[in-house]
């Protein structure tokens, strides 16, 4: 068997809107695959088609070698889906949630505690879900998706609406589950998340995949200049323009920023002038790739 997920030419229209407009991608076994895009890009619809919640208007998709539509009871035990953090039974404790979801897959109740430990919620086992914090609820919902030890896991914007600490904490959990040989598909609109977690990302906008590849390769492919910045006033602007390899120089009164294709040479020259106060070197990020591809204007 070839790919864990194989999608080609997926299309889905809602009225006049082409939510998904010819999307093709393959995901290999054990891969951490990200689908990145702004709100309304069609990420969730693609995910829903692959999960078997929606039928594509056109195109082919197979998951673990099986068609996900119509509802396929042979496929379902092999995939895990994490939905919004609110998809819990009301007034049940964290442990009871896991036991209930587990029982739908024939998982013994004892596994609930192992899952709680995996996501660091052991001390919240007896707490009703309504009383969990956003981050705790999100970790529980991931545990619920993993309770039957699926080969393939879908995570739909797991870190949306979490504070920075909770996000980092969740990344650790996600990195942990991917080392167990699972295939993970994640949608997100956080570039840093995709960059640090995913083996490959597909950047989507307006129902299409604009670029697909490893985050580092996408950044490199952008061929964007690096930026070397020092504290403003460390060096006159004219002197900075004269530096070797300096393409562009700007001083906004806080920082003096030198754009360059050769940050090493610029830093060496600055060091020679003893002008390294507050130096920072910034490379292009996935965010630059994303903005380059989708444009910078704000879309509500």
């Amino acid at each position: 068997m070839a790919y864990t997920i194989s999608a080609s030419g997926l299309r889905k229209r809602y009225g006049d809107v082409a939510a998904v407009d010819g999307v093709s991608f393959d995901v290999e076994a054990g891969e951490f695959f990200g689908i990145l895009g702004p709100n309304g890009a069609g990420k969730t619809t693609v995910l829903e088609i692959v999960e078997g919640l929606r039928r594509a208007d056109g195109g082919e998709v197979s998951v673990l070698g099986l068609p996900p539509w119509p509802r396929n009871p042979r496929l379902l035990p092999r995939i895990g889906v994490q939905l919004q953090s609110s998809a819990f039974f009301e007034r049940l404790t964290a442990r009871e949630q896991l036991q209930t979801f587990g029982s739908l897959y024939g998982v013994p109740a004892a596994r609930a505690d192992a899952m709680l430990e995996m996501v660091g919620l052991t001390d919240k086992a007896g707490v009703q879900v309504e009383k969990l914090s956003g981050g705790q609820a999100q970790r529980l919902s991931i545990a619920c998706a993993l309770v039957h030890d699926p080969e393939l896991v879908f995570l739909d914007e797991p870190t949306a609406a979490l504070d920075p600490q909770a996000r980092r904490n969740l990344w650790d959990v996600l990195a942990g589950i991917s080392t167990e040989g699972r295939t993970i598909v994640l949608t997100t609109h956080h570039m840093d998340e995709a960059e640090s977690l995913c083996d490959r990302v597909a950047i989507m906008d307006a129902g299409r995949i604009l670029q697909l590849g490893a985050p580092a390769a996408l950044v490199r492919g952008l061929d964007a200049p690096a930026r070397v910045s020092v504290a403003s006033g460390t060096l006159p602007v004219e002197d900075a323009r004269a530096l070797p390899a300096a393409d562009e120089v700007a001083d906004d009164g806080v920082s003096l920023v030198v754009s360059t294709r050769d940050p090493g040479a610029v830093v060496a020259a600055l060091a020679a002038k003893d002008a390294l106060a507050g130096v920072r070197i910034g490379g292009a990020t996935l965010e630059d790739v994303f903005l380059e591809l989708t444009g910078r204007e704000y879309r509500a």
Partner: peptide
Amino acid sequence: VTWRTKGILRRLRLSPAP
């Protein structure tokens, strides 16, 4: 209605439970 708006119906649909 609660199960639908909270996504529990969807979650159940994605489980093998008939």
